[in-house]
Nucleic acid binder design. Structure first.
Lengths: 124, 124
DNA sequence: ACTTGACTTGGAGTGCACTCCAACTATTAA
DNA sequence: TTAATAGTTGGAGTGCACTCCAAGTCAAGT
């Protein structure tokens, strides 16, 4: 599968795909005789995971570290587990932060809905 | 209240507080005769809200726009309402993204917990 | 009187995550 | 055969959100 197809499937730029590979967030993708990337199913798994993790806010360097450990083999199970748990905890905190902000926004929105009707913003 | 106290209460740098004011995310804080910021209760409300919104990921320019509308007065209730609703929707999506990633991480973590025990990563 | 320390400003610098660019190569279509 | 299209690389540039810095002011302590 070409980089173009992958970029269309996952709605991500080709530049970003090349960038993820360059920095080591995903393993090197095999090239055909003319040097063009040919993504395998496994490559797609890595791409998918990378996109998922990044869109939740996991830092690039953490994902690079994960792949580095992965490439080192079975000796790094514990380190990978630790890394994943760390990120899990951080995401829980981030979700909590979002929940707080949603509450605050909800409160403000309800006040503005009244304000739009009455022309006045109450108890400010 | 001085900038030092505010920065300690909210655990944010003085530089960041000055930055928020400079770009217009919070209203201008009054200075005393010697030109030093003296934060009022209202200022603290703005600071608190700014920090809350930022830590959930709302962009600076959106918060700047909100303050700009706020300063324009009652004519902008609807625009402010719309802005807040937009951000609310974005946060819901972001939370959904985090939930998906948490699921994925949870799955990986459970596999690694077994791997650490058995020395093998199953069905890979 | 002088030093110390906390503050002020405008503006430069940093780190992150892309995003774009120039120069090049290979394949296909006219 | 030539032009268009789609890919390649290394490296430069961008946008965001701070973060740091230099040069200065002011109030309090010795």
């Amino acid at each position: 599968m070409t980089i173009k197809q992958v970029s269309e499937i996952y709605n991500i730029s080709q530049d970003t795909l090349r960038y993820y590979e360059k920095v080591g967030m995903i393993p090197t993708v095999n090239r055909n005789k003319s040097g063009i990337r040919d993504y395998t199913e496994q490559d797609l798994d890595w791409v998918q995971t990378a996109i998922c993790m990044r869109s939740a806010g996991l830092p690039v360097d953490v994902l690079v570290e994960y792949l580095k450990l992965y490439k080192q083999g079975d000796e790094t199970f514990e380190q990978r587990l630790q890394l994943l748990k760390n990120q899990y905890d951080k995401l829980l905190k981030q979700r909590e932060q979002i929940n707080q902000t949603l509450q605050k926004l909800d409160y403000k929105i309800s006040r503005y809905e009244i304000a739009v009707k009455t022309g006045k913003l109450s108890w400010e």
